[in-house]
């Protein structure tokens, strides 16, 4: 059973969120339950501790005694599977840091087309509730967490004898070998070269004649070898 957990000290908001959930869930045949909390108490703490249940939390950031972010931190002490959405009166760009660190699905402003936005995000949450979202690994005492969706490709850097994880905005040198990394990747990653694996969801085009792969940010790499060409053709545009 899927649990929606609403945490807000304003009864009106809780009601509204409840309505959005009902609107979203009625057409589906998913069994679900909605739980409401106006403050962080013992029963809320026990709910967080409960294992083996799929949960989607909708937390208000501005609660006097124990804020939504406090609850999110409490959840993330042990649980990295549940989905967390945060409601806030004013969204600031720097909240992205919290979003990343606490793996929050999204922040929703209470004043900006709030019910529709919540509906859209909950729809996404429903989809994402059974998909592992982040690539986590440790290399040379440094822990990394990178969204799978953000990765374009991973290549072996033979000169530096390490592997490079290339995302939309950054590249991370990692001292794990490509095979070790590939063992951790989901199905949407396919090998295109002895020294390269790509995220097929982020591929724009592939020029099989010139062996050039173009990603959706227009970055190009020529890491397509004969050995993997057939497999790539089958999987990327299937």
């Amino acid at each position: 059973m899927l649990h929606f957990v609403i945490f807000d000290d304003n009864e009106l908001i809780r009601e509204k969120v409840n309505k959005v959930i009902t609107k979203l869930m009625l057409p589906t045949d998913i069994e679900y339950k909605t739980l409401e909390f106006s403050k962080y108490n013992k029963s809320f703490a026990q709910l967080i501790e409960r294992r083996g249940e799929k949960k989607i939390y909708i937390l208000d950031i501005e609660v006097d005694s124990y804020s939504g972010l406090d609850v999110a931190r409490k959840i993330r002490e042990r649980d990295w599977e549940s989905i967390i959405i945060v409601l806030t009166a004013h969204y600031e760009l720097a909240y992205d840091a919290f979003k990343n660190r606490l793996m929050l699905l999204d922040f929703i402003s209470k004043f900006d087309n709030y019910e529709q936005n919540l509906y859209d995000v909950l729809k996404l949450a429903l989809k994402a509730s059974h998909v592992k979202k982040q690539f986590s690994f440790t290399s040379n005492r440094m822990a990394y967490r990178v969204d799978y969706d953000d990765i374009l490709y991973i290549i072996k850097d033979t000169a530096k004898r390490n592997t490079i994880v290339k995302t939309f905005s950054k590249e991370y040198p990692v001292s794990l070998n490509l095979n070790e990394i590939m063992a951790m990747l989901p199905d949407n990653f396919i090998q295109t070269h002895r020294a390269c694996t790509i995220n097929r969801d982020n591929v724009k085009t592939i020029d099989f004649k010139e062996n050039i792969i173009t990603f959706i940010n227009n970055e190009k790499i020529s890491m397509l070898s004969k050995t993997y060409k057939k497999e790539v053709k089958e999987h990327v545009f299937s």
Partner: peptide, 11 residues
């Protein structure tokens, strides 16, 4: 002290 890279953030 723990240092992590989480997407675009150094934590």
């Amino acid at each position: 002290v723990k240092k992590e890279i989480i997407n675009n953030f150094f934590v």
